[in-house]
Simulated assay, not measured.
Amino acid sequence: MTKALGRDSTCSIARSLEVLGDSWTLLIIREAVVAHTTRFQDFRDALGIAPNILTKRLALLVDEGLLERRTYRQPGERARDEYVLTEAGRSLSLIIAALADWGRTHRPRPDGTSPRFSLDESGTVAELAFVTSDGAVVPPHALTAHRTEDARLGIPA
Rank of each mutant, 00 (worst) to 15 (best):
S16V: 02
I49F: 10
R7G: 02
G89R: 00
T38A: 10
Q74M: 13
S93N: 08
T25N: 04
G89L: 03
E87R: 01
L26E: 09
T86S: 13
I13L: 14
E18A: 14
L85M: 12
N52K: 13
R44F: 04
R70L: 13
A35T: 09
V19P: 02
G65P: 11
A59L: 02
V62K: 07
S9Q: 10
R70N: 06
V19C: 02
A46W: 01
I13A: 11
G6Q: 08
R70G: 02
A79M: 04
L54R: 05
I29K: 01
E77M: 03
D8H: 14
R69K: 10
I49T: 12
C11F: 12
G65C: 10
T55R: 10
G48N: 07
N52E: 15
I28K: 07
C11R: 15
I28Y: 03
L67M: 04
N52R: 11
S9C: 05
R73L: 00
R78Q: 09
E68D: 08
Q41E: 12
D63W: 01
R70F: 03
R57A: 06
E31C: 15
D42H: 14
L94A: 05
F43T: 05
A14H: 05
T37C: 14
D22G: 09
R39V: 00
G76E: 15
L85V: 11
A32K: 04
L26T: 04
I13M: 12
L94Q: 12
V62M: 06
D45T: 13
L67A: 00
E68Y: 01
A50N: 09
P75F: 00
L27F: 15
V33Y: 02
G76Y: 05
A79L: 00
D81K: 02
Y83V: 00
Q74A: 14
R70Y: 04
P75I: 00
G76Q: 11
L60M: 06
D45S: 14
R90M: 09
D8C: 09
L61W: 01
L27I: 02
P51N: 14
V62L: 04
N52G: 07
R70A: 05
D63P: 01
R39G: 12
G76V: 00
A79K: 10
A79D: 12
T86G: 12
E87T: 07
L17H: 07
R73I: 00
Y72K: 05
A35H: 15
C11N: 15
L20N: 02
R39N: 08
D45M: 07
S16C: 10
R78N: 10
L47A: 09
R30A: 12
S23N: 10
R73H: 07
I28D: 05
A79R: 08
A88I: 01
G89I: 01
A35Q: 15
S12M: 08
V62I: 05
K56S: 12
L60G: 03
R44Y: 08
S12D: 13
T38Q: 10
L20P: 06
I49L: 15
A50E: 09
E18W: 10
L47M: 15
R30S: 14
A32F: 05
L60P: 03
D63E: 13
A50V: 04
L67E: 08
L20T: 03
S9A: 11
G65F: 11
T55V: 03
E18T: 01
H36P: 01
T55A: 06
R80V: 00
A50D: 12
T86W: 02
